[in-house]
Amino acid sequence: MTKVLTDARSIRIKGRSFLAVVLSPDLPFDDWLVRLDDLAARSAGFFLGRPVVLDVADLPIDRTQLKELLGEFAQRNVSIMGIEGARPSILAQGMPPALKGGKPVSDEAVAKEPIIELRNSQSKPVAAEVRPASQSIIIREPVRSGQSVIFPEGDVTVIGSVASGAEIIAGGSVHIYGTLRGRAMAGSVGNASARIFCRKLEAELLAIDGVYKMAEDMPPGLRGQPVQLWLEGDTIMAETLI
């Protein structure tokens, strides 16, 4: 059957921003991959269905090494949607496309693209751009498993619990008036002064300004307690609230 194209409508092109996880590996890759596997093992499904950007800026690697690294990701079912900070000479056909800074100049709307950086305490401090996080939203009901609250503009307050398998991603601080069982990421667009507060800590993952911590990394005394977390240098600090 032949189809006659009589439709004269033009193609619509839209800009849309997506929240991407940025992975910034450091050398030697073997060690870094061990830490990545550790994170993935303890936070099952973390990379599943999530756009991941690979940041290789300042890494003294060649094309072969990049290819190998991409292979490692493929083996782990982590699909890289783009590579940031790569010298053109190390990119090759069949690799994910090069991305620039997450802020394409052509599109105003995309310029605000929120990016989560997943670093760990050993990595070099990235000069994060600090934006004033003055806005806030209040969620008046429990955040259920499978739901994400993403608010790069500022603080997120939840009056209720955050379920296992749910996540809160805030540009500013995260306040949970309930039990935090899922993931909370504060300062997700680069804000080292953001904090996480919760009435009862049972979290699967906590991150502030890209520095992450699993619940198991926390002193057991904090479990089930009202807790606040903040960043000192590249270390997440925690204390119980009275």
Binding site: E141, R144, S145, G146, Q147, A163, S164, G165, A166
Partner: peptide, 12 residues
């Protein structure tokens, strides 16, 4: 319990 929690989210 977790699956039910997910379903409650969909109901809403």
């Amino acid at each position: 319990v977790r699956d039910s929690d997910r379903i409650i989210g969909l109901l809403d």
